[in-house]
Structures are given as structure tokens and as C-alpha cells.
Design a protein around this nucleic acid. Structure first.
Lengths: 204, 204
DNA sequence: GTCTATAAGGTGATAGAC
DNA sequence: GTCTATCACCTTATAGAC
């Protein structure tokens, strides 16, 4: 509590850095800007984090992690596949809406440096395994149309993520720049995406 | 033909600039790097295009345009909606694969400056109008399940674009870093995406 | 049109006082 | 821990010779 080191400074730095990096990307972000947003100066920034790269690494890791652990709970539940999809879509879109700029940030930074992903590889791999197995089981049992587990997973995530990362285009082009209409559409997708997917794979 | 001004220099600049900007983005790109790639020096770069921003604007415009005019032909054809979807998906994924880094480039740059889109607004709006009408007509006629035209369009584009812009993640996480397997998956999507969508909206 | 040289300002990072 | 001052380098852009 009453320590000499004021931990709120570090917290302010991280918040400011996250905002700056996610908005501008690694190359566009400025240490001066981060210092200003945190209400300190550049020297102190370097005192806490040696370099811009080190600071970025921390932010990227945090941002990335925030988007995957959530997978586990729903995915591993031993429930009906359709309900699993419904639960996942609803929770995932909700999660994305809390940090709508993180997905494009991650994809952009991974695009210019794919190696950043390697640290997370096994973590995600393990998290998705049960879902893959579940899908394959349902296909083999003839309960859903034949589909590769990987394909179904990609499709679900694409339908959740894309409308948010393409917001500047979607809002303007499909909703005449009407923010309310755009937001309502995203909100409805929390349930509609799952039904769209389920309609496609269910057997009549 | 035999003009004093060698137009191939300008061509080389544009090619080099496109490569650099699309790979690194506006803030990450370097004029020196563009000059090197084009086999000239920075001064000449500024002789052709006053500033980095002006050059970027040209590249962005070109990149963006390349992704929308193609819509028109298929979309306006007076053919069955399902065949229209099949044709669009096939041609659009083919187009994306020719410039796989452009979509993330556009989305990232639009994210940091949404105003860049305004020039293209009416162009895209007009191009999509016939498709919207066609979808609404089919819904009203009871030929497909009820769905908002905007939703269906977003879904189709999401399923085409996302697997490509998320390549670094998808390839590693879902295909164990097997490039061949990833490429095969994308290739198959040229037909599978349409069937996935059609299965979802068709009435049995 | 194309080059070399250089200006002018920005940017990450450190030294050193408090 | 936090600051001011400053360094060393990078980056865009221009001046001016050919």
C-alpha cells in the first residue's frame, strides 16, 4: 500500500501504451505520446521499460491473451454442439465489442511479424482440440453435414470478427454511416451468427 | 514512345511504393526503402511525388479500387441468386489471392483514418444496390430464409476475406504451420464458402 | 530527369541531478 | 522514482549541380 514505488504509475503507463499502440500500431506509436497520455515523461517510460520494443511486447502479449483464454470455458463444456456454438458466438462477440480495435491490431502486427505468434501456439492449439474432436464426432455420427472441423471453426470466427474489424467500411457502405444502425446489427449478430452457422450444418 | 520522360521510372516507383506501403503500412514505410527498391534515389522520388503522403494516397487509392470494381460484373448479372453467390465467391477469393496483403492493409489504414473511405462511398454504394435488391426480392418471395440483405453480404465477404487476413494465425493454429494444407484450404473455399452460405439460406 | 549534399525536425534512448 | 537536458541517429524534404 504505502510503498515507495507507486504502482499506479506503471498502471498508467500500461494503459497509455495500450491505447497508443492499439490505435497506431508499433511503427506509428510514439513514446512521447505514451508519456503524455500517462502524465509522465519519456525518461520515466524508459526507466520502467527499457525500450519501445519491450513495452510493445508487453502490450501485444496482453492484448493477444485477452482474446483466447475465454475460448476454453465454453468450448470444453460437455454440451450440445449447437448450444456450444451459440454460447461461443455470444460470448466472443461480446468480448470483441469490449476491445473492438484489438483484432485488427493483432492481425496487422502479426502480418508484419508472424513470429510473434509462436509463444501462443501450444496454448491455442490445446484450447481448440476439444472443439475439433466434438465437430468431427458429430460429422461421423451423421448429426451434421460433412464439414472439416477447421473450416467450421474458421467460418464461425470470421463471422464474429470481420464485421468489427471492417467497421469503417461496413458502417459507411452498408449502413449509410448510421452508427446506431451499425451497432444494432453487431448486437443482433450475437445470436444471428450462430443461427446462420447452424442452419448451414444441420440436417433436415 | 521515344519521349524524354522515361515513364518506366514512374512505373518502377509505383511498384516499389505499393510493395513497401502494403507490407509496412503508412507509418512503417520508408521513402529510402522505396527509392532503393525502385533503383533510384530519394530526391527523384520527391520529384515525382511531392511527399510521402501524396505517394501513399496514390497507392491506397489504387489498392482500394482493385477490390471493388470487380463486384459489378457478377453482381449485376441477371442470374439465379445462388449462382450469383457462387460466381462472386469464386472470383472474389481468386482476386484476393492475387494480392493477399491488400485487405489487411486497407483495413488497417482505414482504421487509423476512416475518412480515406469517403471518396469511394457512392461508387461502392451503387455497385451493391442491385445485389441488395435481389436478396430482398428472394426473401419476400419466400425463396430463401428471411435474412437482412446487409447481413448476408457481410457474411459472404467475411467468409472470403477473413481466412486470408488471418493467415498467420490460421496457418499455424489450425494447420500446424503447414503452408500446403493452408493453401489447399483456401483453394477449396472458392466453392465451399458459397455452398456453406447457400445451405444456410435455402429452404428445404 | 537524375544525381549529391544537406537542411530541418523528429524520435528513441541515456546521463545525471534531485 | 521522477525530472531536465541532451545525445545520436533517423527520416522527410529541398537546394542546386549536371
Amino acid at each position: 500500500m504505502s510503498t515507495a514505488k507507486d504502482s499506479s504509475t506503471e498502471e498508467k503507463i500500461l494503459q497509455a501504451a495500450e491505447q497508443e499502440f492499439i490505435e497506431k500500431g508499433l511503427s506509428g506509436a510514439r513514446m512521447q505520446q505514451i508519456a503524455d497520455k500517462a502524465g509522465i515523461n519519456k525518461a520515466l517510460l524508459h526507466y520502467y521499460y527499457r525500450s519501445k520494443d519491450k513495452l510493445f511486447e508487453v502490450i501485444f502479449k496482453t492484448a493477444f491473451q485477452a482474446f483466447f483464454p475465454k475460448f476454453k470455458r465454453i468450448i470444453n463444456d460437455d454440451i450440445d454442439l449447437f448450444d456450444k456454438i451459440r454460447g461461443f458466438v455470444n460470448e466472443y462477440i461480446t468480448l470483441i465489442l469490449k476491445n473492438p480495435n484489438i483484432p485488427i491490431f493483432i492481425l496487422h502486427e502479426l502480418n508484419s511479424n508472424p513470429d510473434r505468434l509462436s509463444i501462443f501456439f501450444s496454448q491455442i492449439n490445446i484450447a481448440l482440440q476439444p472443439l475439433k474432436l466434438h465437430i468431427n464426432k458429430e460429422v461421423e455420427a451423421g448429426n451434421i453435414r460433412p464439414i472439416e472441423a477447421e473450416t467450421l471453426i474458421i467460418n464461425i470466427i470470421a463471422l464474429c470478427v470481420f464485421p468489427v474489424i471492417a467497421k469503417p467500411i461496413v458502417k459507411v457502405v452498408l449502413f449509410n454511416n448510421d452508427l446506431e444502425a451499425y451497432n444494432l446489427m453487431i448486437e443482433k449478430r450475437k445470436t444471428e451468427v450462430a443461427e446462420f452457422v447452424i442452419n448451414s450444418i444441420k440436417i433436415n
